[in-house]
Write a protein that binds this DNA or RNA. Structure first.
Lengths: 229, 229
DNA sequence: GGCGCTATCTATAAGTA
DNA sequence: TTACTTATAGATAGCGC
């Protein structure tokens, strides 16, 4: 669509390649905007110049656009620049590049918690759903860990009391047998020295497996970062 | 560029909006391709239809393109279809829409495990890192759950044995005291009726808290789906 | 819904300042 | 360079299958 038809291959002349880049880049972004408006769809166009500059168009790119979030996130991982969110201006490097921090992303995602239609299975919905599911998962894990720890604590307490009772019983058996052997019939006088042989009918001291988790090793409830994607 | 100039606003008629979407989408992608060829730059165009279909053009898009991976993942979350990766063909739904199953995505990601420079903090690197961290997290969780369950089992076994020993000791105490009271001095004849009063010095039966986790309720080691992102 | 047609509108290659 | 102009190639709106 110029004075002459051009071959579809890299323009070798640097100057005219730059001119064409500028013109066609603008045209591409303009058409992308028109498509998104006319057909009410999400469109994203990214153009990386050879000098690393990003020229982008992201439709409906308020900070709540899912697509722009994807791309900003991509941008985040690429560099640390930041600029204002400004979508309706002409395309130019300074206004086209939009960066969003992870924190802002979190806030934006959380805003979607309010109104979400079940029918529109949009990216936003899935993001929201993932967030909710993940929250539920984290809560479940924490509750599980809590119950586990409580269970262990209870069992240990039980063990402690049983062992204590056991020791007292052994003491008592020893005393009673001691009195028996010495012919002492005074019921309340039960202090005697335990004889080893007197306990042969008692079960052997219980051999228990060593505990696998020590107090300090018990993992705390899992703290997971919210997964946004 | 049609028989008539159209207003730049959403086309209300659904049918003609669909037609325009198809035509302009093709045009946009064609122009994107031309721009990338003529000016030798990286260009990406993403168009999401309202039904969640992704039409994309990514210049130089081998399957290792990070951008196309982002989008294929989005596609994954939208539906389960799959098609070949084919970037250099004409744009049309069948060739332009590139879907990748979760499994394929995993393989692709895993391929990145081989050569990764620490300096290049690219998206691929982060994907890989996240995967590794997540694997470690899952393993940690499973191991934690396993140790927890083993601990609970061990403690219960211990409790069982202690209780058993305890009962035997109580029996013995009762027998011995019975013999004492009846004046029977034969050591081996220890069968006697337990007198209630004889055990007043024994500690009261241990009062333990009820277990919070019953056998059937014990959660199994956490089975988490691998998080890819 | 998709394809082809074509009059018309748009984008832009070259030319000019 | 950057910007404007202009002739043309290219895109597409409306229509008919």
């Amino acid at each position: 669509m110029g004075r002459r038809k051009i071959e579809m291959k890299r323009i070798e002349d640097k100057s005219s390649r730059q001119v064409t880049f500028s013109k066609r880049r603008s045209g591409l972004i303009k058409k992308a905007r028109e498509l998104s408006i006319l057909c009410d769809v999400d469109v994203a166009v990214l153009v990386f110049s050879h000098r690393g500059r990003l020229y982008e168009f992201v439709s409906g790119a308020s900070s709540s656009s899912s697509l722009s979030q994807i791309l900003r996130r991509y941008q985040d991982s690429t560099d640390g620049k930041a600029s204002n969110v400004d979508d309706e201006t002409e395309d130019s490097p300074s206004t086209c590049i939009q960066v969003q921090t992870c924190g802002e992303l979190v806030k934006t995602v959380e805003r979607y918690a309010e109104g979400s239609g079940i029918e529109n299975l949009s990216l936003e919905d899935f993001m929201q759903l993932e967030k909710q599911l993940n929250d539920a998962l984290v809560q479940t894990r924490n509750r599980k860990a809590q119950l586990m720890l409580e269970s262990v604590a209870t069992l240990r307490e039980k063990e402690k009391m049983l062992t204590q009772e056991n020791d007292q019983l052994k003491d008592e058996v020893a005393k009673v047998k001691g009195n028996l052997n010495r012919g002492n019939r005074t019921d309340l006088e039960l202090n005697g020295v335990m004889e080893e042989g007197a306990l042969i009918q008692c079960p052997e001291p219980v051999r228990t497996l060593p505990l696998l988790i020590e107090e300090g090793e018990c993992p705390e409830p899992v703290k997971t970062l919210p997964l946004l994607w």
